[in-house]
């Protein structure tokens, strides 16, 4: 039997890596992907706790998170398409129209 804390530590590491990727990457699509990575890490926590507590609420919540992530990906990628069309670049530093 794998202790639940192993899963939680793994999930924390993945979340941390997601944060690091979010900060360091320059490509908008990759930044968006690192958000997905963080969501995934949180999902692992939900499922692990659902197992530890013997309740299904965690799994239902993961289901909702996945649905929301799907909606988010659809809108987010549409926005990225627009940015790429207007800026001719996917570099996040080029998206600076609001900057003085």
């Amino acid at each position: 039997m794998v202790p639940i804390s192993y899963y939680l530590v793994l999930s924390a590491i993945l979340f941390g890596l997601g944060v690091v990727a979010f900060i360091f990457k320059r490509n908008i699509i990759t930044i968006f992907m690192s958000i997905e990575l963080m969501l995934n890490a949180v999902n692992l926590t939900f499922v692990a706790f659902s197992r530890a507590l013997g309740k299904l609420d965690g799994q239902v919540f993961v289901f909702f998170v996945i649905v929301v992530a799907a909606a988010e990906a659809a809108v987010g990628l549409a926005i990225i398409l627009l940015i790429a069309r207007n800026q001719q670049s996917l570099n996040i530093e080029r998206v600076n129209l609001l900057k003085l």
């Binding site: 039997m1 202790p3 890596l17």
Partner: peptide, 23 residues
């Protein structure tokens, strides 16, 4: 980022360490 990871791991695992997995 590193600090966040360690802290998260520490607190989460510490809180659930005593929780026996329901097999």
């Amino acid at each position: 980022g590193f600090f966040l990871t360690v802290e998260l791991a520490y607190w989460i695992a510490g809180g659930a360490g005593r929780q026996a997995p329901v097999s």
